[in-house]
Design a protein around this nucleic acid. Structure first.
Lengths: 231, 231
DNA sequence: CTGTATCCGTGTTGATACTG
DNA sequence: CAGTATCAACACGGATACAG
């Protein structure tokens, strides 16, 4: 017979619910679909446009990105905003609650990075590496350091503030920074997490350092990847 | 033309990788598939058999459960063990690293529960509510309470130890407990999170209390759901 | 230039029935 | 009890084509 009517569906645009009161189950419904959590990660430092998201998420197709943005909007994780007339482009921006997903996202990253399957040489978006800094900074190594560090990944500028053993990050021109890394995310990762000397990247033309060189040398030692499981 | 050779695949049985060095992306590859994280949750208090998992995860089908278990085993999240001859059944058990996923799982739950879409009246597995206790216990409310509390959900016994503002949980007969709840997960949830009086559940025949009644009354007040976003 | 909608080939998911 | 086989439905990603 099979009279499966319209019983489910129409909850927030998604079908297939777990029917489980557990918060973790709901989380997987909200951000568990392929790409969703990475979209949230990309938005973590401020609103982005469709094309910026598409460029940062290599492999996603336009229609899938549209679907995910719709789903996340319906779930209240992000909102679509139209910037005022001069530059009347549309941006996608996390809601206040959406920003609170930073903790779960970092916890997942901290856990997964210990997998033997983790390959730190894979490509990395700018938002990824900035998130990794927030996740992996060692309060012990940072000590009482208080410094403003800037980054320019092509057209994407970031300004970070190391203080109180933590690091705050926002998208901003790094003019006020004491030191500025002009490079790409993978090069920076190879230095911070792969032990590649700064001079090596400079010699390869992959990095230009501006400002306080000693501070830059110190900065790249502040982050520690947890040991791989079994190692 | 399209000469896409065998470049990828064969990593751990899964296709479709994000090709992203970010830990969060890897986490979603490891446990982001539908059902995977709920399977891990069910295993959080010890190894379980295929049929127990299938029963706890309402809606999952046998072939999907098989696939997920294979995937999680290939990723090193769980192992398949054959219990010694007397009861030579097979169980699935988290690896040491698999158990470490408790933190990300709790963080996700803590976040998602603030969604307006969260419906606490949905069904709940025994493992779910015990995990929720670990997630939602209020150190402030628990204060210096030190107590052993037991649960019997049909054939599933648990023993919890409240101490130091936290709660440890394991699957064990609650004989040594000072108080024992004999009920089902949803009834217990309605009391702890829904404010339903214990007497009401008892009158409805949904709960039998054993041991120290005053302790039970105190226990059910130890847990606080975070406020919904916007509330 | 910034998205959105549609088609299409492929792969994944899931319900049912079935086997060791 | 612990899965496998089959098949239908859907999701994914690529390539357009289209709209503001």
């Amino acid at each position: 017979m099979k009279l499966k009517k319209v019983t489910k569906e129409e909850k927030a645009g998604r079908g297939r619910w777990y029917d489980d009161a557990c918060g973790t189950a709901l989380a997987m419904e909200l951000v568990g679909e392929r790409w969703s959590m990475l979209i949230v990660r990309e938005l973590m430092f401020g609103g982005r446009r469709f094309s910026e998201l598409k460029a940062a998420l290599t492999g996603i197709s336009a229609n899938i990105l549209t679907q995910r943005l719709e789903g996340l909007e319906a779930s209240g994780v992000l909102v679509r905003r139209k910037l005022p007339p001069p530059a009347s482009v549309q941006i996608y921006e996390l809601t206040e609650w959406g920003y609170e997903s930073e903790e779960p996202i970092k916890a997942l990253g901290r856990w997964a990075v210990r997998s033997p399957l983790h390959d730190p040489t894979l490509p990395l978006s700018a938002a990824s590496i900035m998130m990794s800094f927030r996740t992996m900074i060692s309060a012990e190594r940072a000590g009482s350091l208080d410094a403003h560090v800037g980054f320019r990944f092509g057209p994407e500028p970031f300004l970070a503030h190391v203080a109180n053993g933590g690091i705050a990050v926002r998208r901003a021109e790094p003019d006020a920074a004491q030191t500025v890394f002009e490079t790409d995310p993978m090069t920076l990762a190879s230095i911070v997490y792969g032990g590649r000397p700064i001079e090596d990247a400079e010699a390869a033309g992959a990095l230009t350092l501006g400002g306080d060189r000693a501070l830059a040398e110190r900065f790249v030692t502040l982050f520690v990847l947890p040991d791989k499981f079994g190692a």
